[in-house]
Design a binder for these strands. Structure first.
Lengths: 126, 126
DNA sequence: ACTTATCGATTACATGTGTAATATTTGAAG
DNA sequence: CTTCAAATATTACACATGTAATCGATAAGT
């Protein structure tokens, strides 16, 4: 896993768009974000520029526009953020964190079943 | 739940100390943190001051020293952070987040058993 | 070939954060 | 009561972040 830079909250929004589809032009990204966020296009350009500087995003010139793509994998970024969250908030204790979510959040029967399956598999591995 | 201010990464360390035990003097907090963090005492004073300003921490004068205590509950802060994490990284989808952790992290048989119990209880509630 | 609409690049600016040092106040010691 | 040590308050400063506007280059249209 390449060195994952820190990606801020606003920048994550941009990354999520690119992970869903890439390459994309800045305008297409702005378009995609117009549904969820309320940023001016210029703001989005800034976020993209910062991601490029952090080497989280790369681009290829295509005429006068650039075509942007992620340089870091979503799974890797998720893992970094997850570990950071876990250690920051729960002192790295996985089980209490999971228990906390399980108790608070709503889950359908199917989802519960799915989680059970994962637990079963996990237990088998020991 | 009172309005929970944003608590930065470094500030969380301080809050964790106070949640474990309070009230505490600034020096005691610094002492407690010397084990985990490598901040100068002055730095810790700054963090405390900021938490006071944010009204996450209160104090009572006791002679020339102050005795600090949390003004916000740990459970509430954990909930705020958890929701933020969940929506930021997993678009608010609980189950995929849980699945991701279950698959990546190590869990003892006992922990797995405990999680199963929670799932059972949850299923019963529907 | 010129003008113009647009792109990306550069600049802006307030606020937050990490990480402290200096200044000021004040309880305690003599 | 004066002095000193220690605690709090104020100030510092660079970098990150949210949120954009302006500048300069250039492809596209006429």
């Amino acid at each position: 896993m390449k060195n994952i830079p820190r990606i801020s909250e606003a920048e994550w929004q941009v990354m999520k768009v690119l992970w869903r589809q890439s390459p994309m032009t800045a305008n297409a990204i702005a378009e995609a974000l117009s549904a969820t966020a309320s940023w001016k296009p210029k703001t989005i350009k800034t976020l993209i520029a910062r991601l490029v500087k952090k080497e989280a995003v790369g681009f290829e010139k295509q005429g006068r526009e650039y075509n942007y793509s992620p340089l870091v994998k979503e799974a890797d970024c998720v893992e970094v953020e997850s570990r950071s969250f876990l250690s920051r908030i729960f002192d790295g204790a996985t089980q209490p964190m999971l228990a906390s979510f399980l108790e608070k959040e709503e889950l359908s029967a199917a989802e519960i079943q799915e989680l059970r399956k994962i637990l079963d598999k996990k237990e088998g591995e020991e």
